[in-house]
């Protein structure tokens, strides 16, 4: 489904984020990418959302070479990918419902379709009761759930999570990871970038360890070890 083939992201001499990375990810996998800050985890993910493009090598997504995606096709590409971040990136002046609906509005969906899809997805993330709340009225965990709902409302084939629990306490982290596992069980591929050892060990799925832009370990049922 996703393939990184000899991918490098080079900014200048001795200045690179990724070096000759080779990874293949199958549909339905849950992949944790671990490593310290600045080892290229985020860059790896940004190559998928095309926030960045590789300097060398190819990134293949659903048999499409991402290097060939034009600017015009980019919005449609991004609708096939859901993304969540450490800082949630919610719109503070919109309610939970409106934040999720926003993703469908900008894609030109009808109001009826939006109401139906958003209600459904809020149910999945367990926020049906709080759809009228503004982000400031929600806990960190709940805000991240809203962000997850927004990421999933397009029914993407893959969910990319860039340090989603970085701002959360232990209990909330637990809940978010459980939710990600549930989403994965429902069939969505998940790529999780994190440096939280506990989290990774608890998931007990495939782990890719990165260091200084390189993949140094790739284990099917791995633990966080450097």
């Amino acid at each position: 489904m996703i393939e990184y083939r000899d991918v490098s992201k080079i900014y200048g001499e001795d200045n690179f984020a990724l070096l000759e990375v080779n990874i293949a990810i199958n549909p339905g996998e849950f992949v944790s990418i671990v490593g310290q800050s600045g080892t290229g985890k985020s860059t790896l993910l940004k190559l998928l959302t095309l926030e960045e493009r590789s300097s060398e090598g190819r990134v293949i997504f659903n048999r499409v070479d991402l290097g060939e995606i034009t600017k015009k096709e980019l919005p449609y590409h991004r609708r096939r990918i859901g993304v969540i971040f450490q800082d949630f990136r919610l719109l503070p002046k919109r309610t939970a419902f409106e934040n999720v609906a926003f993703a469908l509005e900008v894609a030109g969906k009808s109001n009826r379709e939006i109401r139906r899809s958003v209600a459904q997805i809020l149910e999945i993330v367990g926020l049906s009761e709080k759809f009228r709340a503004y982000p400031a009225e929600l806990s960190g965990g709940e805000q991240q759930r809203v962000a997850i709902a927004r990421a999933l409302v397009h029914h993407p084939e893959i969910l990319i999570a860039d340090e989603p629990t970085g701002n959360l306490d232990v209990i909330n982290t637990q809940e978010i990871i459980d939710l990600l596992l549930k989403i994965n069980e429902l069939g969505t591929t998940i790529m999780l970038a994190t440096h939280d050892k506990e989290t990774v060990n608890r998931i007990s799925k495939r782990v890719i360890v990165m260091d200084e832009g390189r993949v140094i370990r790739d284990q099917v049922r791995g633990r966080y070890m450097i």
Binding site: T49, K71, K72, L74, P75, Y76, H77, R78, R79, V83, R89, L91, F102, A103, V106, A107, G108, R150, H154
Partner: peptide, 17 residues
């Protein structure tokens, strides 16, 4: 800024932005 960033993230059409 945030709105624009999110719009890009969720795949808004350019002219919609």
């Amino acid at each position: 800024k945030t709105e624009i960033e999110i719009m890009k993230l969720v795949g808004a059409n350019y002219w919609f932005i």
